[in-house]
Design a protein around this nucleic acid. Structure first.
Lengths: 339, 339
DNA sequence: CTGTTAGCGCCTTCAA
DNA sequence: TTGAAGGCGCTAACAG
C-alpha cells in the first residue's frame, strides 16, 4: 500500500470503484440493497484498498447529526463518576454515539468553557454529572435546549430528565440498619447541603426514619470535603457528646467516607469498636480498612447506561414528559456496623 | 432573545452585522487588527445577540485541523489512568485541544473500534495508555502515521514517543528500601510479564538490586489480576517457604496491590507484622489499610501533562527524533514495611 | 439501479 | 480595510 499524503475521500473511492459518489454514499449508509452486486463489490474493494473512512466532520456538517454526546463530569477522579461513565460509554457504543468527555474539575469557568465547547462541536445531547454545577452553567444549558439528562441531581426550576439513586429508599435502609444494630446516636454527615437534592433527600429520609424510633437521637453536620480540622472536631465532639451509648456516623458519599475514615484514624477512634460507620457508595477498599466499612452500593454502571438511553430517546424525539428514573441501592454490611 | 429553531451561522452574523462573512471569519480568527473599530463592534454585538458559536465541524472540514486529540485508555476504572487523564485534560485546555476519550476496557475489538472512530473524527493526534494493547491495534496505529505518544509502555519495533515512570530508578529505590528495613526474602509480584516493558523493567531492576546484597533472596511470580486462588497460593507458599525470616512482597501496580491485600487478608496474614508489603502506585486508602501500605507514588498528573505536550509538539511538526521521557517516583513509607 | 448537482458552515485566495 | 467566490467531504434531492 502506498503511503498517501492525506486520507482518501469519498471521491477517491468513487473513482477507484469507477462509479459516482452517490453510490458510495449509499453503500456507507446501509442502503446496499439498492446496489447491484458487482458495483457493491467494486466499492467494497476500493474502500478496503484505500483504507477509507468517511469523515465524521463532513457528515456532521451535512446532516446536522454528529453522533456526538457531551458528558460533563464534575470530578473524574471520583470513582462514582468513573463507574457511571463506564456505563455511559457502553451504551454509547451500543447506540452508535461517541462520548465527548469533559471534566470540569468542579470549577465554574471550566464548566462554562466546556458547555461552549460542546455546543461548538454540535453534540446532539448532553449527560451531566455535576454535583457542584453552578446556576450560571445550568441556565446556559437550559437555553441551549439540547437533549439533556442529569445524573444524580435534580435542580429546582429546571425541568429535565434525571436518573439516579432512590435516595429515600437507600437512606431509609441504611438508617434502619444502624438502628437494628443497636446504635442509638446517629450522625448524618455530608458536604454542605446547599441545594443539592441528593444530600437533602438522604438527610430527610435519615431524619424521618430515625424519628420512628424513640430513644434514637439523630443529628447531622455539614463539612467541606477538605477541611480536616473541622471534620476532626465534628467527630470528636459527637463522640464525646454520647459517651456511654452506641453511636454511628453515616457519610453521604464515598469521597466523604474516605475523609471520615482518615479523620477517625487521626483522632484515634476505631470504627466498629468505638463508633459505627456507614457510607454511601461502595469503595474498593471497604473490606480492607480495619474491620471493614459498611457501604450502600449504588448500581453506578446501570445508572450511566440508563442515562444515556434516556438522552438518546430524547434525541430521537420520543418526547414524552420529563422523566425521573431511580435505582435502588444495596447495603453491604461489614465490620464497621457490627454489634 | 428569540428561540431560533437552529443555531446561528456565520452568515447570520454577517447579515446582522451588515457585512460579509469574511470579516466575521477574520474576527473569529483573531485578525481583529484588520477590522475597523465600528465594524468590529457591530460584529461583536451580532455574535452576542445571536449567541453564535462557530461550528467546529465546518472549521475542521475546511482547515483539516479539528483540534481534537484521541485518548485511548485501557481501563478508565484504574486510578492511575484517571490521574494521568486529568493531567492530559489540563494540558488540552491550555493548548486549545479537546480530548476524545476512549475507554477500551481492555478488549481488543473495542480498541480497533475506537481506533477507527478516532480516525473518522480526524483527530490530530493520539495518546495511548493501553497496557494491554494488542499488536493488531498497534500495527493499525502505526499505519495511520498520526502523531502519537505512548504512556507507560514502550513497544518493541515500534518507534514512538513514550512518557512514563523511571521504572529502573523506582524499582531500585523500592527494593533498597525493603532491604534496608531488614527484609531478606523478597517476592516481586506482577501480572504476566508478556512483553509489557514496565513490568519487565521493574522486575529487572528489582533483581539487579537484590543481587548486590548477599543473603537476600529474590524471586518473582506472575498472576492474572483476578485469579484469586492462584494469588492466595503464591502468597501462602512464599510465606511458608521462608518461615523463620523476614520477607516482603513488592506488587508491580496499584490494581494488583489491592488484590494482594485482599489475598493476605483471606489467608490470614497481616502486612507489617507477618509480611512486608510495598506497592507501585499510590492508593488513596493506603494509610487506612491495617498499619498502612508503603507505596511508590508516580507523578501521574505530570506524566499526562507531558504526554500531551509531546503530541502537540509532533502535531506542530517539531519533528525531532523519537523521544523518551521519564519521571521519578517517590517512595511513601508506611507501616507495611516497618521494622 | 445509478449519476449529477447543490449546498451544509467555514476559511482563504483574490480583487476591489 | 472589506467582500465575493470557490471548495473542504459528504448527503440528499432529482433526474436518467
Amino acid at each position: 500500500m502506498t503511503t498517501k499524503a492525506s486520507r482518501a475521500t469519498i471521491s477517491d473511492v468513487a473513482k477507484a470503484a469507477n462509479t459516482g459518489k452517490t453510490s458510495v454514499s449509499r453503500y456507507l449508509n446501509g442502503e446496499k440493497h439498492l446496489l447491484s452486486p458487482p458495483l457493491l463489490e467494486r466499492i467494497e474493494k476500493a474502500i478496503a484498498d484505500l483504507d477509507y473512512r468517511p469523515s465524521q466532520m463532513a457528515r456532521g456538517l451535512k446532516r446536522g447529526r454528529t453522533r456526538l454526546i457531551g458528558l460533563i463530569i464534575a470530578d473524574i477522579t471520583n470513582p462514582y463518576s468513573v463507574n457511571v461513565l463506564s456505563g455511559i460509554e457502553a451504551a454509547c457504543r451500543e447506540k452508535g454515539f461517541t462520548p465527548l468527555v469533559c471534566n470540569t474539575n468542579n470549577e465554574l469557568d471550566q464548566e462554562l468553557h466546556y458547555l461552549d465547547l460542546l455546543r461548538s462541536y454540535q453534540v446532539e445531547g448532553i449527560v451531566v454529572n455535576a454535583v457542584g454545577m453552578r446556576e450560571e452553567g445550568l441556565s446556559r444549558l437550559q437555553q441551549s435546549a439540547l437533549p439533556m439528562v442529569l445524573i444524580d441531581r435534580k435542580i429546582p426550576d429546571f425541568a429535565c430528565d434525571v436518573v439516579g439513586l432512590d435516595n429515600s429508599q437507600a437512606a431509609t435502609t441504611a438508617t434502619e440498619h444502624l438502628i437494628e444494630q443497636g446504635f442509638e446516636a446517629l450522625l448524618f454527615l455530608s458536604e454542605p447541603l446547599g441545594t443539592v437534592n441528593t444530600r437533602q433527600e438522604r438527610l430527610k429520609a435519615f431524619r424521618h426514619t430515625a424519628e420512628r424510633y424513640p430513644g434514637v437521637v439523630a443529628q447531622n453536620a455539614e463539612t467541606p470535603l477538605h477541611e480536616t480540622e473541622r471534620l476532626d472536631n465534628i467527630l470528636r465532639q459527637f463522640h464525646q457528646q454520647y459517651r456511654g451509648i452506641r453511636k454511628a456516623v453515616m457519610s453521604a458519599n464515598g469521597a466523604l467516607t474516605l475523609q471520615v475514615a482518615r479523620s477517625l484514624k487521626r483522632i484515634g477512634l476505631h470504627w466498629g469498636a468505638d463508633i459505627g460507620l456507614l457510607g454511601f457508595d461502595e469503595l474498593e477498599w471497604a473490606e480492607l480498612a480495619g474491620v471493614g466499612i459498611t457501604t450502600l452500593k449504588q448500581p453506578t454502571w446501570q445508572i450511566g447506561y440508563a442515562a444515556l438511553e434516556q438522552v438518546v430517546k430524547r434525541i430521537e424525539g420520543h418526547e414524552e414528559t420529563v422523566r425521573e428514573q431511580v435505582f435502588s441501592g444495596e447495603l453491604i454490611v461489614r465490620g464497621s456496623t457490627a454489634r
